[in-house]
């Protein structure tokens, strides 16, 4: 349990989900894909357990991909290593306005 892990569930994803406690600004996180291959990534900001980190720079309006599908669009520019959540991701569906 000593590894600071983030899981990337689909090869096309541009975010991974963190399964480490207290991931803080400037720390290193190990991003593991479904085959178990991993690479290190420098974290920008503090990211809670179970929340997402950007695996590449994402332009405003671009799709944020998890499970190989869009889970919303970037509401502002997101840097590689940055925390991704409701502050910079807009849902494209299902808010009762469909």
């Amino acid at each position: 349990m000593d590894r600071n892990l983030a899981i990337k569930v689909n090869d096309n994803d541009n975010v991974a989900t963190i399964f480490a406690q207290n991931t803080s600004d400037g720390s290193q996180i190990e991003v593991v894909d479904k085959k178990g291959q991993s690479e290190m990534l420098k974290v920008i900001g503090n990211i809670p357990y179970g929340h997402k980190i950007a695996l590449s720079d994402i332009a405003p309006g671009a799709q944020i991909l998890k499970y190989g599908e869009s889970i919303g669009a970037a509401s502002k520019a997101i840097k590689k290593g940055e925390y991704v959540h409701v502050h910079n991701l807009d849902s494209m569906r299902g808010r009762g306005d469909l």
Partner: peptide, 21 residues
């Protein structure tokens, strides 16, 4: 209305950012 209020505040706290996710 089953769509209303999704994801729930608890989901958002847990890290889910959208109903798609």
């Amino acid at each position: 209305d089953m769509r209303k209020g999704q994801p729930t505040p608890g989901n958002i706290e847990g890290g889910l950012s959208s109903i798609e996710e």
